[in-house]
Design a binder for these strands. Sequence first.
DNA 1: GTTGATGCAAACTATTTGCAGGCAG
DNA 2: CTGCCTGCAAATAGTTTGCATCAAC
Lengths: 175, 175
Amino acid sequence: MVRAPSPHRLAPRKQAHPEEQARFESFLRTRQLKYTGERRALLDAVFASKHHFDADSLHLALRQKGQEISRATVYRTLDLLVQCGLVRKQSLGDQHAHYEAVHGDEHHDHLICMNCNRIIEFYRPDLEAMQEAICEEFEFKPLHHSLQIFGLCKLCQAKGVDGLELATRVSQLHA
Amino acid sequence: MVRAPSPHRLAPRKQAHPEEQARFESFLRTRQLKYTGERRALLDAVFASKHHFDADSLHLALRQKGQEISRATVYRTLDLLVQCGLVRKQSLGDQHAHYEAVHGDEHHDHLICMNCNRIIEFYRPDLEAMQEAICEEFEFKPLHHSLQIFGLCKLCQAKGVDGLELATRVSQLHA
DNA sequence: GTTGATGCAAACTATTTGCAGGCAG
DNA sequence: CTGCCTGCAAATAGTTTGCATCAAC
């Protein structure tokens, strides 16, 4: 099934994600947990995927790479990765959780197209600052936040998708 | 149980929520749906509750008022109210949906205390404006949005609740 | 009278958990 | 070896749905 890898090419960082792996290992060690093959595979798969994913598609992706890992373990490991701060868990209007790998300290919010389901990520320091200001005003100590804007992306507007038609679905959103 | 109402005082809008009721009725009529006793009771209960609630507590509240309405009907009717725009459905970090009555066109965002679960609502036009600006930049047509800031409220900070202790739970958030 | 609504229980989806055997440290 | 880990299947939680009966128009 798999083409034999060219032995001539330099192995481009064979160790999939060394930094994340190190962080996960140390996280596990401090809790006397074990770095098993399944956990390694999960970590790799998570950091291989560029954007949002859900538990099921991750499970499927692993299976397609020949990694047989049970759903239960997928959930359990995702949980560890979340606790460890390597993964973020979010609700994006669906009835199931979405996850995304955290690269560095980067944070972003989402524009979600209600027609094609495309998710556009953005980060605006001034928006973050304004949120900080609001929290100060309420003497509220923020630890985390989540902003999602639902609507129509440029392409879907061009396609002439009817905003009103979607208006009904807007209110149905579970977010 | 109920004190006899003073007959001298002007009946302060006896019809629980006339505007909302009218809107719901017309919504139903245009779809050839029926305005049943259950739907009326649900509508009343929803607009009686000041803030956020979930399907189950609504069901319970009705039951305690002597209204026996099945869970299925609660869900079905909430759905109608949402479609009709009288109720908003949201995910506030829990695994179940939250709902809130929509009063007029008012919109607000949430500060959610991770210790006592208190929900503080706020509305900031400048924040909304900034979001609009971001959407324009991406040529994205916003139809709806949701901002939740998780953290510690003033009181819980004073109580000396440990932010770090919560840091773990932060990442667990399903939002 | 029609047609849609309700309650019940069963079905479903996403996720969690108990347990017996397996593997990392 | 010891204790954590895994897969499995059963358990949960929240929500949805099929169906026979009932009520609104």
